[in-house]
C-alpha cells in the first residue's frame, strides 16, 4: 500500500472526502515554497500535488502558468523540486506527495534517474499531463517498479471507448477533470460532473478526485459528495500571486493568506468528519 492508498483508506474510515491541494514547487522562491508545503497538511490538505514548473504548460490556465514562470525565474529546477520533497519528508512521513507536470523536464532529466530520485525523495505518485496512455510505455512501467502511483486524468471528452484504456494501469486515484478546458477557468457544473463520475465508477474501484475550476468551500462540499477527493489548484497559486510585492517576492502575507484559504476550503470536509456517525 502506498501513502496514497493509506490516505484514501483513512478518509473512508473517517467518512469524509479528502482535500488535494496544488502548489508549484519553487513559487515564488524555494524557501517560501518549502515553508508553504510544510504548512499545507496542518491547514487541511490531505494530499499535496506539487507542480514541477515548465516553461510551456499548455493544459494550464494563466494562474498556473504564471506560478510556473515565477518559480523558474527564481531558479527552480527538477533537482530542487526533488530536494524540496526530501526536506518535507524529514518532518512529515504521512501526507502523500504527487508530482504533477509535463513530460519534457522528466525526459531531459532521464526517466530512470528521475523515477529513482523521486522515489528516494519520498514522492508517492506522478501525474504527467501530456502523457496519454498511448505514449506512456517509456515511463509508466518504470514507476511501477519503484511503487510510485501513476495517476491519469479522465475528462468529459473521455468517452466509453477510451475509458478502459485510461483506467488500465492507473493507480492511486483517478483525477477527474471537471470541465473541458484548462485549469482555473470555468466552474464545474455539479450535476454533469456527477453523471461523469458515476460513469467512471462503473469501470473502476479506484478513488476519484475531482479538479479544475474549484474555488469555493461550497464547491468543495458539493464535489466531495460525489467522489473521494476534491483538487484545488489555480485558486491557491492565484492567492500566492496576489500576496507578492512588485518584484514578485514573497511578503509577510503570503503564508498566512495561502494557509488561511486552505483552512477555509477544507472546512466543509472537516465539519462532515466531526459530525456524529449515524
Amino acid at each position: 500500500m502506498t501513502r496514497i492508498d493509506q490516505t484514501f483508506a483513512k478518509l473512508k474510515a473517517e467518512g469524509r472526502g479528502g482535500l488535494v491541494t496544488f502548489i508549484t514547487a519553487g513559487d515564488p522562491d524555494y524557501d517560501t515554497s518549502l515553508s508553504l508545503l510544510k504548512g499545507l497538511p496542518g491547514a487541511g490538505a490531505d494530499i499535496v500535488e506539487l507542480g514541477m514548473p515548465f516553461s510551456d504548460p499548455m493544459a494550464d490556465g494563466p494562474a498556473i502558468q504564471a506560478s510556473s514562470l515565477r518559480a523558474l525565474k527564481a531558479g527552480q529546477t527538477m533537482k530542487k523540486t526533488l530536494a524540496m520533497v526530501r526536506d518535507f519528508r524529514t518532518e512529515n512521513t504521512s501526507t502523500p506527495i504527487v508530482l504533477m507536470g509535463y513530460y519534457n523536464p522528466i525526459y531531459v532529466y532521464g526517466v530512470d534517474r528521475f523515477v529513482t530520485d523521486a522515489s528516494e525523495a519520498g514522492v508517492d505518485g506522478l501525474i504527467i499531463v501530456d502523457m496519454p496512455p498511448e505514449e506512456d510505455e517509456e515511463l509508466r512501467p518504470v514507476t511501477a517498479e519503484r511503487a510510485l502511483n501513476f495517476i491519469r486524468l479522465a475528462t468529459p471528452t473521455t468517452d466509453e471507448r477510451r475509458l478502459p484504456a485510461v483506467l488500465a494501469n492507473t493507480s492511486g486515484f483517478v483525477y477527474y477533470v471537471s470541465i473541458a478546458g484548462i485549469t482555473g477557468t470555468a466552474a464545474p457544473d455539479v450535476s454533469s460532473v456527477g453523471a461523469h463520475v458515476a460513469r467512471i465508477k462503473a469501470h473502476t474501484d479506484l478513488p476519484i478526485a475531482i479538479g479544475f475550476g474549484v474555488k469555493t468551500p461550497e464547491q468543495v462540499r458539493d464535489l466531495a459528495a460525489l467522489a473521494e477527493g476534491v483538487v484545488v489548484g489555480s485558486a491557491l497559486v492565484a492567492t500566492i500571486g496576489s500576496t507578492l510585492d512588485e518584484n514578485e517576492r514573497a511578503t509577510a502575507e503570503t503564508k498566512p493568506k495561502l494557509l488561511g484559504l486552505v483552512e477555509y476550503l477544507s472546512e466543509p470536509l472537516r465539519r462532515r468528519a466531526e459530525a456524529p456517525a449515524i
Binding site: M58, A59, Y103, V129, D130, M131, P132, E134, E135, R152, L153, A154, T155, P156, T157, T158, D159, R161, R162, V166, V177, A180, G181
Partner: peptide, 12 residues
C-alpha cells in the same frame, strides 16, 4: 513524433 497531449484532446 507521437501524441503527447492532454487527455481532453486525445479523443479529438
Amino acid at each position: 513524433g507521437g501524441r503527447y497531449v492532454a487527455e481532453t484532446l486525445m479523443p479529438l
